[in-house]
Simulated scan of single mutants.
Amino acid sequence: MIGRMFGSIDLMVRVLALAILLAFLLPATGEARVHAQNASNIAIFILFLLNGLRIDRAEIVRGAANLRFLAPLMLWIFGAMALIGWVVSASLSGLVPPLVALGFLFLGTLPSTVQSATSYTMLAGGNAALSVIAAALVNIAGVFVTAPLFALIAGSVQAELGNEVIMRIGLILILPFLIGQAVQGWFRERIARRKQQIVWVDRLVIALAVYVAFSGAVEQDIWDRIQPLTWLLVLAGMAMMLLVGHGGAWLASGALGLRRADRIAFLFAGGQKSAAIGVPLGALIFPVEIAGFVLLPLLLYHLFQLVVAAPLASRLAKG
Score class of each variant (00 low, 15 high):
residue 132 V to F: 10
residue 62 R to Q: 14
residue 236 A to C: 11
residue 120 Y to V: 10
residue 205 V to H: 07
residue 264 I to A: 03
residue 235 L to A: 12
residue 197 Q to K: 14
residue 130 L to E: 08
residue 307 V to C: 05
residue 249 A to G: 04
residue 20 I to M: 15
residue 247 G to Q: 07
residue 208 L to R: 06
residue 102 L to S: 11
residue 257 G to H: 03
residue 248 G to D: 00
residue 87 V to Y: 03
residue 109 T to I: 05
residue 298 L to W: 02
residue 129 A to M: 11
residue 314 S to C: 13
residue 210 V to C: 13
residue 245 G to D: 02
residue 83 L to P: 07
residue 285 I to S: 06
residue 299 L to Y: 00
residue 296 L to F: 09
residue 225 R to Y: 08
residue 297 P to S: 00
residue 61 V to F: 13
residue 224 D to G: 06
residue 243 L to G: 03
residue 181 Q to I: 06
residue 309 A to C: 04
residue 56 D to K: 09
residue 45 F to R: 01
residue 114 V to D: 10
residue 103 G to W: 01
residue 236 A to S: 09
residue 255 A to W: 15
residue 252 A to M: 08
residue 115 Q to W: 00
residue 249 A to D: 00
residue 141 A to R: 15
residue 105 L to Y: 10
residue 25 L to V: 08
residue 20 I to D: 07
residue 87 V to H: 05
residue 308 V to R: 03
residue 294 V to S: 08
residue 293 F to P: 15
residue 212 V to H: 15
residue 195 K to G: 14
residue 132 V to M: 11
residue 314 S to M: 15
residue 120 Y to S: 02
residue 268 F to Q: 01
residue 174 I to S: 14
residue 22 L to H: 03
residue 53 L to Y: 04
residue 75 L to A: 15
residue 271 G to N: 01
residue 172 I to Q: 10
residue 168 R to I: 07
residue 198 I to K: 13
residue 202 D to R: 14
residue 140 I to S: 00
residue 196 Q to M: 07
residue 81 M to P: 01
residue 205 V to D: 09
residue 314 S to L: 15
residue 108 G to P: 07
residue 29 T to F: 06
residue 249 A to F: 06
residue 271 G to I: 01
residue 217 A to R: 09
residue 172 I to C: 06
residue 208 L to F: 07
residue 169 I to K: 14
residue 236 A to P: 06
residue 201 V to T: 15
residue 209 A to D: 08
residue 263 R to C: 02
residue 243 L to Q: 00
residue 13 V to P: 09
residue 140 I to A: 13
residue 276 A to F: 00
residue 54 R to E: 11
residue 160 E to Y: 13
residue 273 K to P: 05
residue 36 A to L: 12
residue 135 A to G: 07
residue 196 Q to T: 08
residue 311 P to G: 12
residue 100 V to G: 04
residue 146 T to N: 06
residue 178 L to Q: 03
residue 60 I to Q: 01
residue 291 A to E: 11
residue 97 P to I: 13
residue 72 P to A: 12
residue 210 V to A: 11
residue 67 L to R: 14
residue 138 V to T: 14
residue 213 A to P: 12
residue 157 V to S: 15
residue 160 E to K: 12
residue 33 R to G: 12
residue 265 A to N: 03
residue 98 P to Y: 10
residue 43 A to L: 08
residue 31 E to C: 06
residue 161 L to K: 04
residue 180 G to H: 08
residue 78 F to V: 04
residue 254 G to N: 11
residue 192 A to N: 09
residue 259 R to E: 15
residue 143 V to Y: 04
residue 129 A to Y: 06
residue 7 G to L: 10
residue 1 M to E: 09
residue 305 Q to P: 01
residue 108 G to R: 00
residue 273 K to I: 08
residue 303 L to M: 10
residue 21 L to P: 11
residue 284 L to G: 08
residue 86 W to L: 01
residue 240 M to G: 15
residue 51 N to A: 11
residue 279 V to Q: 12
residue 92 L to C: 04
residue 251 L to A: 14
residue 221 D to E: 08
residue 183 V to M: 04
residue 311 P to R: 09
residue 164 E to C: 05
residue 116 S to G: 04
residue 14 R to T: 05
residue 221 D to H: 07
residue 205 V to N: 09
residue 70 L to M: 05
residue 302 H to Y: 02
residue 194 R to M: 04
